[in-house]
């Protein structure tokens, strides 16, 4: 059976999801919506599907089983609640919401309606992160003790990201990836202390340093940068030390192919990329679709997404007060 998907938001993530769906035999992109008519229509034309200027009309009128929400974070709640009310399964980009209240309302609604809410914490589908989790579980490093993560990139291109009130900035939009991964592997966070600075024109550049303690006593230093220059390749690093050893990876030192070319213009001619047999975004969306089709339990639950959100919100609270925040204090 082919599943029909409607995508809300034709930005970076919407385009990426559309590309992944177009490669799945069991999925048909039924419709696309974006408040930016030109952008939305262009993408709809590319995938030969219907275009709706109003996302709520798409949710009400389109013949889709799945609504995929790829809009800025503050609108996740509205579209999720609407889609759940009309019985659609929902795929939604991370972070689940901007506030805990929104997230909890979303979870409550999908539970009441018995529909899926699948949050795109794609790091759980990256092979290097999966490998780290497997190695730790196999006892490769013994009992985990101290962790370091790094996620660095040039400032995001579109304006809503720069507004911390909307996006939550680095601590929510960028570092929730690491927070989710860390909670997945190390369990519940006990205390969060975070610092961040934003600078340059429109405060576009920023950096965040987070000092976490888990309930088990494991410590984690989580670093996120939107301060690197434009030509800096997206970089992630992870190191975990335990009582029997240490494992680490650095994406900048894991490039299987490097290209050095005179005057390379086209992106694919110059940017070194990690090579995947299957793109982690594709694997993630394929898993979500399969969960919807087979009614199986997803690898990431809405509760997991709420857990990661709490760590981000605790970090934001810590930067506001300049003091440590217990994860349980977030509401």
């Amino acid at each position: 059976m082919v599943i029909k998907v409607g995508i809300i938001g034709a930005g970076l993530m919407g385009r990426l999801h559309a590309k992944c769906y177009s490669q799945m035999e069991s999925v048909c992109i039924e419709s696309i919506s974006d408040i930016d008519k030109e952008k939305g229509e262009k993408l709809a034309k590319e995938y030969r599907c219907k275009f709706y200027e109003d996302p709520d009309v798409l949710i009400d009128e389109s013949k889709t089983q799945v609504i995929d929400i790829c809009t800025p974070t503050p609108s996740h709640r509205q579209f999720t609640l609407h889609a759940a009310k009309v019985g659609k399964s929902i795929i939604c980009e991370k972070p689940i919401a901007r506030t805990l209240r929104d997230a909890e309302r979303m979870v409550e609604e999908v539970e009441k309606r018995g529909v899926f809410l699948l949050i795109g914490h794609v790091v759980r589908f990256f092979p290097q992160y999966i490998k780290v989790k497997e190695l730790i579980e196999k006892g490769e490093i013994g009992q985990p003790a101290v962790v370091r993560t790094f996620r660095g990139v040039s400032p995001p291109p579109s304006f809503w990201y720069w507004d911390v009130e909307k996006s939550g900035g680095i601590l929510l939009d960028l570092l929730i990836h690491d927070f989710d991964f860390l909670c997945w592997v190390f369990g519940k966070v006990d205390t969060v202390y975070a610092q961040n600075v934003f600078f340059n024109f429109s405060q576009r550049k920023g950096i965040a340093l987070v000092n976490l303690k888990f309930q088990t006593g494991v410590l984690a230093h989580v670093e996120g940068s939107w301060a690197h220059p434009k030509d800096f390749p997206f970089t992630t690093k992870l190191e975990v030390t335990g009582d029997k050893g240490l494992i680490q990876f650095d994406s900048s030192e894991s490039m299987p192919v490097m290209v050095y070319k005179d005057k390379a213009r086209r992106k694919e001619e110059r940017v070194p990329e990690n090579l995947f047999a299957r793109d982690p975004y594709f694997v993630e969306l394929e898993h979500f679709i399969s969960c919807i089709q087979e009614k199986e339990k997803p690898k990431i639950t809405p509760q997991d997404a709420v857990q990661a959100l709490k760590v981000s919100l605790a970090s934001l609270e810590s930067t506001r007060t300049g003091r440590p925040v217990k994860e349980g204090e977030i509401n």
């Binding site: 009992q143 985990p144 101290v146 202390y193 000092n211 303690k213 006593g217 494991v218 410590l219 335990g242």
Partner: peptide, 10 residues
């Protein structure tokens, strides 16, 4: 100003 986390786990 300083804030510290520490553990004895290794």
């Amino acid at each position: 100003k300083v804030y510290a986390h520490a553990s004895t786990l290794i």
